[in-house]
Write a protein that binds this DNA or RNA. Structure first.
Length: 417
RNA sequence: CAAAAAGUGUGGAUUAGGG
């Protein structure tokens, strides 16, 4: 019983839910009764990967075994629906909780508030917060951190800072999560100094993520030497650098033109477990493409393809773009087909790259094909797609077609920039 | 009390434009 329970927990924590479920079935077939905690773990495991339907199957089994769903189970499910973008259903489940004698707590509210926010329903998110407080449920540190992050990502810096002060008035002490939220959020708006100013008045704890946030912000400001200094400080203080640290540093060094340093660091860290992370490879690949070292880039691309490293849509998009920019539209087209055959799903970046590439190669048939694809896959043309086409028509002297497109933008509700 | 249950933060890619 303990062996099964511990192993199932382990698999769930490692994100290997399917294996956990396999063991779970074996466990039950041996007439061991999983306890409530094990059910909850497995349900949450499925929810965290957005697979609520499989989670519900487990809930069914759990109820048959005589357990009753509590607030933890409901929160997991609501979180799962939100992560899968099914906020409507999440809201319904939330509404059904009370009827089943289960009161939502601050965790439940946080899941749903974030879900509303991510789907653009800001008003409802704030309204829900109000309702929560009205019911006597008090916002805690995690909820404040969540709200501040949401506000920053929406560009509402002043409001985020107001909440930062408000939480302290309520006796909540900002932690390392608050710190990285401020550094990243304000840093992206070029306000790193405001973040430092705000944080200097509180004593936040530090962790690796907080260090990484600073480090990546410094890199984006072009302060690579300071970033390296911070990296050395991390080593001294015992914060083990991770794949985020390394890819931020490699990207920063490349963008600052310090190619030798970047490649040196890249080669130093990639033999380790990091090889399974595509980000750092893609950063280098993109750089090589953009400085015209196409051969080296393609060599690297093939190396990644043949390794165990998962190659994702970004890696393909970067490579396709590189092939277009180096005047090889046929190879780019081939790679796009190969990507689809491998089951890697193109996104709006990919389509925009293809659109621009085919426009510049004057391959009108392919342009039409991509536009059809965009409509059928729901990655419908956005502002960048229209800009690409408008620019193409203008440069081709087809101003009237560009004007037609401009009107079409308005009609389909895409905002010109 | 425990082997064990839910929410927050960090890294890579797309168009155009001036000198």
């Amino acid at each position: 019983f303990f062996t099964f329970t511990i192993a199932i927990n382990g698999y769930c924590l490692a994100g290997r839910v399917r294996e956990a479920r396999g063991l779970f079935k074996v466990m039950r077939s041996k007439a061991y009764a999983p306890n409530f905690g094990t059910f909850a773990r497995l349900i949450d495991g499925f929810c965290r990967i957005g697979d609520v339907d499989d989670a519900l199957v487990v809930v069914g089994t759990m109820i048959k075994c005589g357990h009753v769903a509590n607030v933890v189970i409901f929160s997991s499910l609501i979180n799962g629906y939100c992560k899968a973008g099914r906020v409507r259903v999440a809201h319904e489940v939330f509404g059904g909780m009370e009827k089943r004698g289960c009161l939502p707590n601050v965790v439940t509210y946080t899941c749903l508030i974030k879900g509303f926010w991510k789907s653009g329903r800001f008003g409802e998110a704030l309204e829900l917060w109000g309702k929560m407080e009205a019911k006597g449920c008090v916002a805690d540190l995690v909820l404040y951190n969540t709200l501040i992050d949401c506000l920053f990502k929406q560009g509402r810096y002043k409001d985020g800072i107001i909440l930062f002060h408000e939480m302290q008035k309520k006796g909540l002490k900002p932690d390392s999560v608050t710190l990285s939220t401020l550094v990243t959020g304000l840093g992206k708006a070029g306000k790193l100094f405001s973040a430092i100013d705000l944080l200097s008045k509180v004593n936040c704890s530090l962790d690796v993520i907080a260090c990484n946030s600073f480090l990546s912000c410094l890199c984006k400001l072009g302060c690579t030497s300071q970033a390296l200094e911070l990296y050395n400080n991390m080593l001294d203080k015992g914060y083990a650098p991770d794949r985020y640290t390394y890819s931020a540093l490699v990207t920063g060094l490349l963008q600052a033109g310090r190619e030798m340093d970047a490649i040196c660091l890249y080669e130093q860290v990639t033999p380790e477990s990091l090889v399974f992370d595509s980000h750092i490879h893609t950063a280098l690949l993109d750089y090589l493409m953009k400085v015209g070292q196409v051969h080296k880039a393609m060599e690297l691309f093939r190396k990644i393809l043949n390794s165990n490293c998962p190659v994702d849509v970004v890696t393909f998009t970067v490579t396709i773009q590189g092939l277009f920019k180096s005047g090889r539209p046929e190879e780019a087209h081939e790679l796009y087909k190969q990507m689809c055959e491998l089951g890697v799903v193109p996104n709006s970046y990919t389509y925009n790259v293809l659109l621009d590439g085919f426009c510049k190669a004057r391959d009108i048939e392919s342009v039409k094909m991509i536009l059809k694809k965009m409509h059928s896959t729901g990655f419908g043309p956005d502002t960048i797609s229209f800009n690409t086409l408008v620019n193409f028509f203008c440069k081709s002297g087809l101003i009237h077609l560009a004007c037609d497109l401009f009107r079409e933008m308005m009609v389909v509700g895409v905002v010109p920039d």
